[in-house]
Deep mutational scan, measured.
Amino acid sequence: SDGDWICPDKKCGNVNFARRTSCNRCG
């Protein structure tokens, strides 16, 4: 959805909800 972002860590790449301020997978 709008504002969702992909974790910049190449080893992670998790797609996070826009409301999250840190990655839901790797923190």
Rank of each mutant, 00 (worst) to 15 (best):
P8G: 02
S22M: 11
C12P: 00
A18R: 06
K10Y: 06
N14K: 10
K11C: 05
R25T: 10
G3W: 14
C7Y: 02
C23H: 08
I6S: 07
D4C: 01
G13W: 04
T21P: 10
C12W: 00
K10R: 11
N24T: 15
F17I: 10
S22P: 07
N14E: 11
S22W: 05
T21W: 08
S1N: 15
K10F: 08
C7F: 01
D4F: 11
N16M: 00
F17H: 13
W5S: 04
C23M: 02
G27D: 05
T21F: 14
G13K: 02
C7H: 00
C23T: 06
N14A: 08
R20T: 13
N24Y: 09
C7R: 05
G27Q: 09
W5Q: 02
I6D: 08
C26M: 02
K11F: 09
C26Y: 00
D9H: 04
N24C: 09
D2S: 14
C23K: 02
S1G: 15
N14I: 02
R19W: 09
N16H: 02
D4H: 09
A18M: 12
R25C: 07
G3R: 15
C26L: 01
V15S: 10
K11T: 13
P8D: 03
F17W: 10
C12I: 13
T21K: 10
P8N: 02
N14W: 06
T21Q: 13
C7T: 01
V15Q: 12
V15E: 10
G13S: 05
W5T: 02
F17L: 11
S22R: 12
K11R: 07
N24V: 12
S1K: 15
D2M: 13
D9G: 04
R19L: 07
N24R: 12
A18V: 08
I6K: 02
N24Q: 13
D2P: 05
C12L: 03
R19V: 10
N14H: 15
C12D: 05
F17T: 15
S1V: 11
R20C: 08
D2A: 11
C7N: 04
C7V: 02
N24S: 14
R25V: 11
C23S: 04
D4I: 13
T21V: 06
K11Y: 08
N14T: 00
G3P: 01
P8H: 05
K11N: 12
R19N: 15
R25Y: 00
D9N: 13
C7E: 01
P8I: 00
G3N: 13
R19P: 11
S22I: 07
G13L: 14
C7D: 03
S22E: 13
